[in-house]
């Protein structure tokens, strides 16, 4: 999996490409944790390039979300589609997280 991060104002935009599964989820979790330790509080995960997400991937996202919640931070999602959107829907993640159609829409809201 490919993880690219950039900062838009106060928001860290994380673009994911490939598969987020038991093998790649720890890597994502580690990188996001590092950013949180650096004091970042707002994250936008662009899932447009993500082909697959497993329960381990969901767990990683959940762990990150919990850390952010403690610090009054926030994580939102954009570009959910296909299987990934399906998984988000089934797992109920859409009921606890905010998802936007596009990165732009998400950033506009977060400003």
């Amino acid at each position: 999996m490919e993880i690219t991060t950039r900062k838009e104002k106060q928001v860290i935009v994380v673009s994911l490409q490939g598969r987020l599964d038991a093998v790649t989820a720890p890597e994502l979790e580690r990188r996001l944790s590092a950013l949180i330790v650096q004091g970042e509080l707002f994250f936008l995960l662009n899932m447009n390039g993500l082909e697959y997400i497993s329960s381990a991937g969901l767990r990683g996202i959940l762990a990150t979300a919990k850390k952010l919640k403690e610090k009054q931070g926030k994580i939102v999602f954009a570009g959910l589609k296909g299987t990934v959107e399906e998984v988000f829907k089934i797992s109920g993640f859409l009921s606890i997280f905010t998802a936007f159609d596009s990165e732009e829409a998400a950033l506009r809201t977060m400003e």
């Binding site: 829907k89 993640f93 606890i96």
Partner: peptide, 12 residues
Amino acid sequence: TGGLVVGAMEDA
């Protein structure tokens, strides 16, 4: 269907 996964949020 479509509740949240179990064990994720205490108040779900």
